[in-house]
Write a protein that binds this DNA or RNA. Structure first.
Lengths: 145, 145
DNA sequence: TTAAGATAGTTTCCCTGTTGACAATTCACA
DNA sequence: TGTGAATTGTCAACAGGGAAACTATCTTAA
């Protein structure tokens, strides 16, 4: 038996580890779910962002909103465009591509939404509505710097 | 302007989205931190698991504890062994490799621990100790099936 | 006006992790 | 006892995402 390091984790660390664990599990399950439609979680994320935006937005803006590299946004939009869920528009600034949700993309979101919502509710079922709210606000505090 | 889908997210969904966001951020920061020592978060994870185990444990056991595929555990242990942080032992069952932390591995953990702990505390600073505890228990409820 | 710097998107290369196939070994049970 | 099923670790192939280099374009300031 070799030497071991005695570690007594603080509350902060324990909470942090669980956060990472839960997050990891959610990302996996989410990715599985979207795989069923030949997409990644991140692909869907782009669709949701575009659906939520009041106007077409640039790729770099998308990248900023989802913490993804510009390079990756290019790829994501590529496949979404190939699937006709999304359209690239030229605009005044010739460096930028504005991206817009197509009707087909909106239809896709509409059709898949029940599944996504159902999964989320199922996921959070172990918590009461009140607990979900506290969780929400606690996470909010962590998110703002 | 194309058609949009009207979405009014439930509390469950909102909490879930924040969970994924926070988790994602923590994994990124964590990976950055360990990159400084030429390791991945997951490499370090293996070390911590071995340090916490009372005896050498098999690779598949490691994989189970960290939700990683057997194939990946092979690679992780490969580099840790190359770095002399870890040792593979034969055992009764000739299919399995028992893995054990070396003294050098323990030393590495000991030296890097302050940084890791400091980062965790910094991360959770926006929450009071009480809030950290509630967060911890709420996540616990989500983790057990 | 023009030259230096900033910004957007793409491409290429690399790293990490998963899946599936495989060989070696062990287990279950007829 | 012996045969089919399960388990363990490894390898090859593949997919997703990041970083850096590159081009095109725009902005700023002299």
């Amino acid at each position: 038996m070799t030497k071991k390091v005695k570690i007594t984790p603080s509350v902060a660390e324990q909470a942090l580890i669980r956060l990472m664990r839960v997050g990891d599990r959610l990302w996996r399950e989410s990715d599985n779910r979207f795989g069923q439609w030949g997409l990644t979680d991140n692909h869907y994320n782009v669709l949701r962002i575009l659906n939520g935006a009041s106007q077409p937005i640039s790729q770099s803006e998308i990248g900023r909103k989802m913490l993804s590299s510009r390079a990756n946004v290019t790829k994501l939009v590529d496949v979404l465009e190939q699937r006709k869920f999304v359209r690239r528009l030229a605009c005044g600034d010739r460096r930028v591509n504005l991206v817009e949700l197509t009707d087909e993309g909106a239809k896709f979101i509409e059709e898949t939404l029940p599944v996504v919502i159902g999964a989320a509710n199922e996921e959070m079922k172990p918590l009461t509505r009140e607990e979900q709210k506290t969780l929400f606000t606690l996470l909010g505090k962590l998110l703002e710097e």
